[in-house]
Design a protein around this nucleic acid. Structure first.
Lengths: 251, 251
DNA sequence: AAATAACGTGCAACTTCGTGCAACGTCAAG
DNA sequence: CTTGACGTTGCACGAAGTTGCACGTTATTT
């Protein structure tokens, strides 16, 4: 067996089992411990692993101990959220969708705002705990991990008992011709229903979604009253000109 | 087992459980107490933990910059949550209440547990996002800030469509004579309803609630199958002796 | 105040480590 | 074909690390 081959084998085994014992490997490979130790030493020098007495462990195992990380929002999403937060009038009943941009919106709502927020996102609900004057109506249902929102029949059922003044919806695709789309069938239906039931519908459109098309249709442009976005291209604007859709560009 | 590996193991266990007992760990790992003490001493010197007589505790929370403001849970609550988490059987449909102790319970559920969790707490739902094999059913309704749970008619309505195998409920008062109580009328009704509808009812009883009495009654002892608590006084035990209520004391 | 448990230190047995060195195979130049 | 440079491997041996025990000290409990 070639030296490089052996090193690769060791590295793979380390990643698989989380540790290496020099003695065991020497027996497995039919080589002396010295050889294994040499390999480990060299790989440790190359930063591939961490050498410890008796064998080796993966590097920076400490870094893995904090499993919870807050997803970082791009500056554009933050500014879109900030702008959208200012659109809510006191006293309104407003639906806020899940997703990172909507979360930024929730985070930027004035602390003393007096209104009712309906949401099917537990993470949005958590963001609003500090707002004393907000009434938060949580939509229940089966939790969809990817978007961190409640969905399914139960959610639809509960949603159908609401009639918000306005809604703020995120999508994964917005195209002048193909309209608004998202990556999950049921999610698309739910967003559509919310838009249907809301007096005024606003789309939160982060830059990477512009001109993208996802598999499932949420709504066509005529249903949308407003989009909040960042650096919207001119041809996109012209494509929307026919519809009465207000464009708020924070770019 | 490699020394480094052992230290990591101890550190992880400390972070999960909130405390370490040198004697227990020496027995668990099949090593002498001296070895464990040496490890703890070295990690304490490295600032990884705080050494105390008998074992170790985490570094004061202020030093750690957690991404999310984590409510400080007492070691007792952590251990009660840890114990309760082990009571869920694979495949069960289980209701988990809101509150800090319940949150610790959610946090200590095995990552690969396959079950269905029903909860009216968005914070519990958020804790369970990483558990791939869990189905999470979120109960919606009006968000009650104090306990971070959904309540009201909508929540009751949705709750009445569930029939959990078991429920885990927190209360703010537990008294041998006056039973289980809490500080909000509607919350009390809701907890009662959950207990009624669940096959097996477990109360999460953190020490400061023992022998306390709050204004609104949740349930009498006969409805309760089990309590998980910490250092339950003997007179309390005797008061419960008449009822068939299992007592799990993690003290 | 006495009893008990936990602690730290020194020490001995054992394991693992690193280094120097010799043996062996490969390969290319002579 | 021979030879020498080079890399790899295994062994020997002193150094360093790890572990458990003994013993005197300190902290906690009763």
């Amino acid at each position: 067996m070639l030296t490089d081959e052996r090193k690769n084998h060791l590295l793979k085994k380390l990643q698989r089992s989380g540790r290496l014992v020099a003695k065991d490997e020497s027996r497995n490979l039919g080589l002396s411990e010295d050889t294994i130790r040499r390999d480990l030493r060299e790989m440790a020098a190359g930063g591939k692993l961490k050498r410890v007495h008796g064998g080796a462990v993966p590097i920076s195992q400490d870094a893995l101990t904090y499993p919870q990380r807050l997803p970082v929002a791009s500056p554009e999403k933050i500014r879109i959220g900030e702008r959208a937060a200012g659109l809510i009038e006191p006293g309104q009943v407003v639906f806020i969708d899940g997703g990172t941009t909507a979360r930024q919106m929730a985070r930027h709502l004035p602390l003393d705002l007096s209104a009712t927020i309906i949401t099917h996102s537990p993470s949005i609900a958590m963001e609003l705990l500090a707002h004393e004057n907000l009434t938060v109506e949580l939509i229940g249902g089966r939790l969809f991990r990817h978007s961190v929102i409640a969905m399914g029949a139960e959610a639809m059922h509960q949603l159908d008992r609401t009639l918000p003044d306005a809604c703020f919806i995120g999508v994964t695709g917005a195209h002048p011709e193909h309209g608004l789309t998202t990556g999950d069938s049921e999610e698309a239906q739910m967003k559509h229903r919310i838009i249907e039931r809301s007096g005024e519908s606003t789309i939160l459109l982060s830059p990477e979604k512009i001109c993208a098309v996802s598999p499932y249709r949420v709504a066509e442009w005529p249903l949308i009253d407003r989009i909040v976005t960042h650096d919207l291209p001119n041809d996109f604007r012209q494509g929307l000109a026919a519809h009465q859709c207000e464009i708020l560009d924070v770019g």
